[in-house]
């Protein structure tokens, strides 16, 4: 489902106020439009300069009223099971990105990554404000708020995000190791940003749009999704470029996927998406679609064992990308 040029340009240039009216499904399509055009890192940096938004401009006044009066306990539970994954997911990708900046050997890539670092920090602040001002949690600082919302995170979260933290740590030690670098890129940009995040992002956003609630959250998270489009376009294009130079790196893409997929076939606690209008089957279909599109873009196919593992993924294990 491609979007037309008019829509694409509207998304491209929208400010925060306009993003409030833009359909999340179009923003997700916009991610893929960009990938097939292989923008350079400086093109993406230029986009960042135009698309950067101010998290302090968001107004959560109406969100707070909606949360207290229009959203049922079941809806809140389903909503928080997903939103909290993003609260912590944004923190993890913010805290673990800098080794990539150090390991990168292109000046242009390094420049782009400084913008991504700033994006991820802003996304973390966005969720901090949402939990503070709308959900009503109290904490003295950023870490305290993360600790407060952690009760909504399930075990399976550590599979992908713990792996990323450990990869980041190893990469810091071996900045010249191209194989390790490819594993990091696969886990960070392809899997976490390109597949996990984009598979569940639209669930809470479509809920807000169809119920006409939480305008501050919708605006900020829609803007976040547009930021993620640059990150995913950047990451997949670096992977594509590296693979052209050294096709043997495909083994590292497969190994990382083997690791994350092997811990994504089980749910420690059931997550019910139904109250916000989705079934586990819907989520799985979106997941398969996102995975296949990213792999095609990078130019990689899956061997049969990974194909089978991908089909076995549980929707609950994706909540929180």
């Amino acid at each position: 489902m491609a979007i037309d040029l008019k829509h694409e340009q509207a998304i491209e240039r929208a400010d925060l106020r306009q993003l409030r009216d833009i359909d999340i499904n179009d923003v997700i399509e916009y991610v893929h439009e960009g990938i097939t055009q292989w923008p350079t890192s400086l093109d993406l940096y230029k986009k960042y300069s135009v698309q950067r938004w101010n998290v302090y401009d968001l107004d959560f006044t109406q969100d707070k009223i909606d949360w207290q009066t229009k959203i049922s306990p079941e809806e809140k539970e389903a909503f928080l099971a997903i939103a909290t994954g993003f609260h912590h997911g944004e923190r993890q990708v913010e805290a673990d990105l800098s080794p990539e900046l150090l390991a990168s050997d292109s000046e242009e890539d390094k420049i782009f990554l400084t913008s991504q670092l700033e994006d991820e920090a802003r996304h973390t602040i966005f969720f901090d404000h949402f939990y503070r001002e709308v959900v009503g949690y109290q904490a003295p600082d950023i870490r305290g708020m993360l600790d407060a919302s952690y009760e909504h995170i399930t075990e399976t979260f550590v599979g992908s995000f713990g792996y990323l933290a450990y990869l980041a740590d190893r990469l810091l030690d071996r900045l010249d190791d191209k194989h390790l670098f490819m594993r990091f890129l696969t886990t960070y940009h392809l899997w976490i940003e390109g597949v996990l995040a984009l598979s569940v992002m639209k669930t809470t956003l479509n809920f807000c749009r169809s119920r006409n609630v939480l305008p501050g959250y919708y605006t900020g998270f829609n803007a976040t999704t547009r930021d993620e489009s640059r990150h995913v376009q950047f990451g997949t294009s670096v992977m594509h470029r590296m693979l052209q130079q050294d096709p043997s790196l495909v083994a590292d893409i497969h190994e990382s996927l083997r690791t994350v997929l092997s811990v994504s076939s089980v749910a420690s606690t059931p997550v019910f998406y139904d109250p916000i209008g989705y079934t586990a089957e819907d989520i799985k279909n979106i997941f398969m679609d996102q995975l296949n599109r990213k792999l095609r873009a990078v130019g990689v196919s899956l061997p049969p064992d990974l194909e089978a593992m991908a089909k076995n993924v549980r929707a609950e294990a994706l909540a929180g990308g």
């Binding site: 075990e155 599979g159 690791t259 994350v260 092997s262 811990v263």
Partner: peptide
């Protein structure tokens, strides 16, 4: 995990 294969470790992380 400061030493050892992190892929092997994460495949049994639970």
């Amino acid at each position: 995990l400061t030493k050892g294969d992190i892929d092997a470790f994460f495949r049994i992380i639970y």
